[in-house]
Structure formats: C-alpha cells, structure tokens
C-alpha cells in the first residue's frame, strides 16, 4: 500500500510538470473550450443584456437591449434598460430616441442626449421608468442606462 501511494505521488508530481507546460501551450485552446463547455457569459449587469431591437436612423442606429432585472436568484425589484447609439461618426449633435423597452408597442420614455456636453434628458411616460443611471461616451458611440422598476 505505501508503495502504491508513493508511485501515485510521483506520477502526480510528474504530471504537474506536464500540466504547467500544457497550461501555457494550450492556453488559447483551453480558454475556448472552457467558455464553450461551461456556456458562461458576462453578466448582463455589465454587458447590458442582449440587444432586443435595433432602430435604423440612416447615418446611425440605436440598439435597445432587453430590460435587465437579473439577480442571483430570481429577479430584483429594480433594474435598467441599456440603449446604445453607434457609430460615433454618424451621430447628430443631439440624439433623440423614443424607447419602448417592454415591446408592448407603446413608447415608455424618450431620451435626449447632447453629444457635446453629455447631458441626458429623460421624459418619462411609463411610471415604471425611474431615472437615467449612466450616460457614457464609448469608443464607437454613446450609451445610456435608464433605471426601471419591476411591475
């Protein structure tokens, strides 16, 4: 028995050296496999959630994401909806966008952004819409997050 344990120990130790080399040689491969096999994604709290609809304005388009209420378990009472406008080059000085975030065909709020100053003005129509959380200029456009309440 001690003999077997010791052989197992040596084998594991030898394997450790191979694991080190494999970790670096196969880093790209293992990374892709890990992501594919586990199916993980970046949390929508950071990525903004999947794009639900895209509105074409000619020189630029608006991407409306799904409303995010994600919590560890179930859903939280407050969430947000993210809207992106891109590309940067095609944006007008003032962006105006009516948004229907829940897809019921009715406008829920409209947002106006002055791309010079970064000032955002929110006009609330649906009472579940609360306020603007962030207005940020990105490398290729603008993004806002509007805080929502769950009904």
């Amino acid at each position: 028995m001690p003999k077997i344990r010791s052989i197992a120990g040596y084998m594991w130790a030898g394997a450790a050296i191979i694991i080190v080399l494999a970790t670096f040689f196969g880093s790209g491969f293992f990374s892709r496999t890990l992501v594919a096999a586990s199916g993980v994604k970046i949390s929508p709290l950071y990525s903004g959630g999947e794009v639900m609809r895209s509105v074409d304005h000619g020189s630029y388009k608006a991407l409306i994401h799904r409303p995010v209420f994600d919590a560890l378990i179930g859903e939280s009472k407050e969430g947000f909806v993210q809207v992106n406008w891109e590309p940067l080059a095609g944006l007008p000085p003032v962006i105006e966008e009516p948004v229907d975030y829940n897809g019921d065909g009715k406008e829920d709020f409209s947002i106006r952004i002055d791309t010079k100053t970064g000032k955002a003005t929110l006009t609330r129509i649906n009472p579940l819409v609360l306020s603007v959380i962030n207005t940020v200029k990105l490398d290729n456009g603008w993004v806002v997050r509007v805080q929502l309440k769950k009904d």
Binding site: I19, V20, A22, T23, F24, G26, S27, G28, F30, S31, R32, L34, V35, S38, G39, V40, K41, I42, S43, P44, L45, Y46, S47, D70, L72
Partner: peptide, 26 residues
C-alpha cells in the same frame, strides 16, 4: 447564473477572463 460578474472580455484582448481561469486551474 452562469454569468461572470466582471466587465471584462471572456476571450481575447488584454488579460481575458477565460485565460486567467485556465491559468488558475493549471
């Protein structure tokens, strides 16, 4: 939730999340 609570890139780019996990496991 099967999601990563960090505003990083999963694969590719500087210090991607998956590569750090592989490194950690190794």
């Amino acid at each position: 939730t099967k999601t990563i609570i960090f505003p990083g890139s999963l694969i590719g780019g500087y210090a991607s999340i998956a590569s750090m996990f592989v490194l950690w496991i190794g």
